[in-house]
């Protein structure tokens, strides 16, 4: 595949291929020296117009473990502050010879827009409230690992919180349902986007009603930085109704797992300390981030499309 921009673009086949490939990358990460020469000579630039800790670091770590060169673009110290446009920035970086852009931007669709200005591959690390495909890959991989089987058939996934602003939710709904899970969204009406009727999901406004039947409880971060319209009356009230409290944690099935894409708002959507939850996958999600992003970088940058003439003979 040339780009990794959305789960729909990947399709089920691409999703499964990347998840299988992640197993291989995870093995590399367990080695005493976790570095392979697979992407020698390739350059990956991370172009983050929004803040990030884990996504950016895990992409850069992933690139380094595959021996790719990495360049980091930091908006706050760049010519963007002198008024350089997105297009000029992308074309300037392209001129330096890069093979892949890892892009995060506050506007939906930027990865598709950029692809028209460069021949490099585009990996979407989050565009507005649209898509965050590598997070969905991380989450699917982590769930598969936790339940010990590849298919998520019949699994009840409950995604709780700020669906409206969440690219993670959109990518995860697509990916989890592709793998066979049933997804339920739990949020106050003001934090649901208007078009959820077309999504393959169930909607509930009460976390307590769905807790008992939940296999995967996926807590979203309340994105206060994107909230200027008074969508919730009070953080405390939101926490009481939609936060994961001790009482709610105890009502989960013993086999149910808890996930959060990070960063957490402690005391808002997370009242319990995840360290106290027996089935928290939150640290696993971070740990698997590097392996998943290695699989994505390898898939995008090591395509064998150009030359088929070597085929069988080099495999022997």
């Amino acid at each position: 595949m040339k780009h990794c921009r959305s789960i729909d673009e990947l399709g089920k086949e691409g999703l499964l291929r990347l998840l299988d490939s992640t197993d291989q990358m995870a093995e590399i990460n367990r080695r005493p020296i976790p570095k392979v020469p697979a992407l020698r000579g390739k350059t990956v630039v991370s172009l983050f117009f929004e803040d990030s800790t884990r996504t950016r670091l895990s992409f850069e770590t992933a690139a380094k473990r595959l021996s790719a060169e990495t360049m980091t673009f930091s908006v706050s110290t760049s010519s963007v502050n002198k008024g350089e446009s997105l297009r000029d920035t992308v074309e300037t970086i392209t001129d330096m010879g890069v093979h892949a852009f890892v892009v995060r931007h506050k506007s939906a669709g930027v990865p598709w827009q950029i692809a028209q200005w460069t021949n490099a591959s585009i990996i979407n690390a989050g565009d507005g409230a649209h898509q965050h495909p590598t997070q969905a890959l991380v989450d699917c991989y982590t769930v598969r690992e936790a339940i010990g089987r590849h298919s998520l058939d019949g699994l009840n996934v409950t995604i709780v919180g700020d669906i409206k602003h969440s690219r993670v939710a959109r990518s995860n709904i697509a990916a989890f349902t592709m793998l066979g899970a049933r997804v339920t969204l739990v949020a106050p009406p003001t934090l649901l986007p208007p078009h959820t009727g077309q999504w393959p999901v169930q909607i509930s406004h009460s976390l307590d009603e769905v807790l008992a039947s939940t296999d995967v409880l996926y807590m979203l971060r309340l994105q206060s930085e994107r909230m200027d319209q008074g969508l919730i009356p009070h953080l405390g009230e939101y926490g009481n109704r939609f936060g994961l409290t001790d009482v709610r944690a105890q009502r989960l099935q013993s086999s149910a797992v808890v996930m959060h894409p990070g960063p957490m708002n402690r005391g808002v959507e997370m009242h319990v300390d995840p360290a106290d939850l027996p089935n928290s996958l939150i640290h696993k999600q971070v740990a698997n981030g590097v392996s998943v992003r290695m699989a994505v970088l390898f898939d995008v940058l090591a395509r064998g499309a150009e030359v088929n003439s070597l085929k069988e003979e080099v495999v022997a």
Binding site: S21, Q24, A38, R303
Partner: peptide, 18 residues
């Protein structure tokens, strides 16, 4: 497969795990 010198020259064979 991650150590081969012909990465990019041929289709990727789905990897087995070491």
């Amino acid at each position: 497969s991650m150590h081969r010198d012909d990465i990019g020259l041929r289709p990727i064979v789905p990897g087995a795990i070491s």
